[in-house]
């Protein structure tokens, strides 16, 4: 056991430096970016780690780069920077909303994209379902070099990743599509959403759904695609009520989590409403 005042901090100067220090420390070290999750470890009754590797000084992890075919988001981009950086990209609207409404303003100013995806205990992360819907890939650096993998794959394996693994950036493909992010905190704002539905849709000229991805967050311990609903809505018009009805029919696929603030049953019960709102937003933003 390490007390908080005994923990050490290494301020990494490069991705290679961070990977090397993390690899050498084995399981004793973790990366630290905005720190808003890690600084609450004791409140979650989680142990303090002997070593933290600060990523905030690494230039390679910063910046939102918008290219013709994709947007590259550095792992240390904050929620606030992401929301600002995506302004004006219609297909990124859902992701911008996720980044711009998560947590509170002061937390959004420091909490990062990489931290949001790497915090495996954080079921209510807003960016995870939004990036799933956006079909994002994650570039992970490690002692064996850099690999790129789909976000779903990263989320599924992040707890087993080798020491030294580090998200470098997130790559979001661009395309002729629109997106929406609907979240349900119990108050108007300021608490973690009990359920999140993110959608990204490409619409055919006839107004029907050509391609649809739905990310669901906070319902299960890990954000996931809602493929059953995606398939059910394929080639259908953007009809909010019909989508909500379909959502009700396919809500049985979830193994929801009970929490202090809401039961698993409630999280699933509200999904059709969130789907309806998401489809309404998509229809409105076309």
């Amino acid at each position: 056991m390490v007390a908080a005042h005994e923990a050490r901090l290494h301020v990494a100067t490069s991705v290679d430096d961070a990977v090397a220090v993390l690899t050498e420390a084995g399981g004793d070290a973790v990366p630290m970016a905005g720190a808003t999750w890690l600084m609450r470890a004791e409140l979650r009754d989680e142990p303090i780690r002997p070593l933290y590797v600060a990523l905030g000084r690494i230039e390679a992890l910063k910046g939102v780069e918008i290219a013709a075919d994709a947007v590259s988001i550095g792992a240390c981009v904050t929620h606030a920077e992401l929301a600002g950086g995506l302004a004006g990209l219609p297909e990124m609207r859902g992701l911008a909303q996720a980044a711009g409404h998560a947590a509170t303003p002061a937390v959004r100013a420091v909490a990062t994209v990489g931290g949001n995806l790497a915090a495996s205990g954080f079921a209510a992360a807003d960016l995870a379902p939004a990036l799933l819907a956006a079909d994002a890939e994650v570039e992970v650096a490690g002692s064996n070099g850099t690999e790129r993998l789909p976000l779903a794959g990263y989320l599924a394996t992040r707890d087993q990743a080798a020491a030294g693994s580090l998200i470098v950036r997130v790559i979001v493909p661009r395309g002729d599509c629109v997106s929406a992010h609907t979240r349900l905190p119990l108050r108007v704002a300021g608490d973690y959403p009990v359920a999140i539905v993110s959608m990204n849709v490409a619409v055919s000229p006839d107004g029907t759904i050509a391609d649809l991805r739905i990310g669901v967050g906070s319902v299960e311990p890990v954000a996931a695609r809602w493929t059953a609903l995606e398939e059910a809505l394929a080639s259908q018009p953007l009809d909010p009520e019909a989508a909500a009805t379909a959502a009700r029919e396919h809500a049985g696929v979830f193994a929801p989590r009970d929490g202090v603030e809401a039961s698993g049953a409630y999280r699933v019960r509200v999904l059709p409403a969130l789907v309806r709102r998401a489809i309404e937003a998509l229809a409105a933003s076309r």
Binding site: L9, V11, M32, A35, T36, M39, A80, A106, A109, V110
Partner: peptide, 17 residues
Amino acid sequence: VDGKPAVSCLTPVGLLE
């Protein structure tokens, strides 16, 4: 912190050089 709001209870001083 550098012009942005931060909750100082969750801001480790080691990050602030």
